Simulated assay, not measured.
Amino acid sequence: MAPEANPFGRRYWEDRYAAPGLAWSGQPNPVMVTEVGLLKPGRALDVGSGEGGDALWLARHGWHVTGIDIAATALEKARAHAEADDPKAAARIDWQQHDLTAWSPKRQGFDLVSSQFMHLPEPARTTLFRSLATAVAPGGTLLVVGHDADVDDLSQRRKHLSGLTYSVDDILAAIDGEDLRIEVAESRSRQARNRGAGSATVHDVVVRASRPHSARAV
């Protein structure tokens, strides 16, 4: 069988999520909470929803969420966790399995499109970010967060992401021409747990953009 073009394709993630316990913390991404917390709830698209930490947080805060992931195992874990933890919020989440290199969301179909640490090789990454930009409804928000390619704090900790990280400029170039108003475009530092003891400072790119209410829905 030929290897997948993307080393982090379906087989990788199915194996990762098949392991006992949680692959991640189960908590929502802090940047997402900070950037989305004051938005009016509506229809949200959580891209690469994993075990559902972001989707469940959004649903608890009144959003109707579509959680997309490539791995059926992740979606099963996310659904089970959400239904056990908060059945009312879980009822507001629609879990869907899609390969984001071959699927595009509905044009202007969401009030929030959130992509947290989606690291794809080019040209798939640019294609994905552009399609996510087109999915933002008038008055809606696009939020893209990822490891910063311009800051060398991943070279030793995450060598496996070589060539898959991106910069603020990469995101802005991908969504250029989609009639979005750029509200945040920066590299932001945070403390992350080390695999050893203590923590380390890492840097994330954060881009938040909105489509004006006056934009014509198509």
Rank of each mutant, 00 (worst) to 15 (best):
R181K: 06
A23V: 14
A174F: 02
R208I: 08
I182E: 01
A215D: 04
L154Q: 14
A23Y: 13
K159F: 01
R43W: 10
N29W: 04
V145P: 03
V207E: 05
G9M: 07
A5R: 10
L143A: 02
T34V: 02
R158G: 10
T134L: 11
A19M: 15
G53T: 13
A215F: 06
V65K: 06
K40R: 14
A74N: 06
T73L: 12
A102V: 14
V136E: 05
K159C: 08
P30L: 13
H160G: 12
A18P: 10
D169I: 01
E183D: 09
F129A: 00
L112D: 01
Q97E: 05
Y166F: 06
R10E: 14
I175D: 14
L100C: 13
R181G: 05
G109E: 01
D111H: 10
Q116W: 07
L128N: 04
R11C: 05
S167T: 09
G42I: 07
D204Q: 15
D204H: 11
N29V: 07
G48W: 01
A84Y: 06
H147M: 07
G21L: 15
A185W: 02
L100S: 01
R79A: 13
T34I: 02
Q116H: 14
F117Q: 15
S25I: 14
A185M: 13
R10S: 04
G196C: 15
S49G: 07
W95N: 13
T73G: 14
A209K: 00
A78N: 03
L180E: 07
P87H: 11
G177M: 10
A197M: 13
T34E: 11
S25A: 12
A84M: 15
A5Q: 10
G42H: 12
R107K: 05
S131K: 07
R158A: 12
A59M: 05
G146R: 00
H98C: 08
I70N: 03
S214Y: 01
V136L: 01
L128K: 04
F110L: 02
S210H: 04
S131N: 15
H203M: 00
R16F: 09
P105G: 09
T126G: 09
T127D: 12
T201K: 04
G196M: 13
A18K: 15
G9N: 00
G163P: 01
A5H: 12
